[in-house]
Amino acid sequence: MEDILIMKRYHKSIFSVTLLLTACLIFGLIGTGFAAHVPIPLLDADGNPIATPDPAGTVAPAFSVKTTCGACHGDKVTYPQLLSYDEIENHSYHAQLGANQLAEWNSANPKPWGQQSPGHFGKW
């Protein structure tokens, strides 16, 4: 009788562990899914959705990151916490490379490339 009780406890324990592992697996995978980015429709430079090529294997417009990423990163209603493409591009020295630092004409050093910006734009 005691052996039977032990076996029942053993099976119950195995069942619990299996249930726990399964739950971990399921919720773990769901967690991975949640960790990935939300679906991203591809948009062209004009902001139009890019149609699936028909027939397959034909050319299609290259996607624009400004419109594709900007569809959410700029939608201040749905995603108010996200900065827009323009906000990021405006305030990025990696993007501007001096294009936002163009200075006035320097009559003392009037080379066309010499004094217009400290970065690539206007420095050459």
């Binding site: 429709p41 591809l42 959705p49 149609a51 699936t52 050319v59 299609a60």
Partner: peptide
Amino acid sequence: GTSVYYNDQVVDNGGFLEFGSSILANL
């Protein structure tokens, strides 16, 4: 310079293209 041949890293969704799961997972 404005058109390309897309490959299987993008998928069809209702007649339009979107990034496939591999791209989304690697962002």
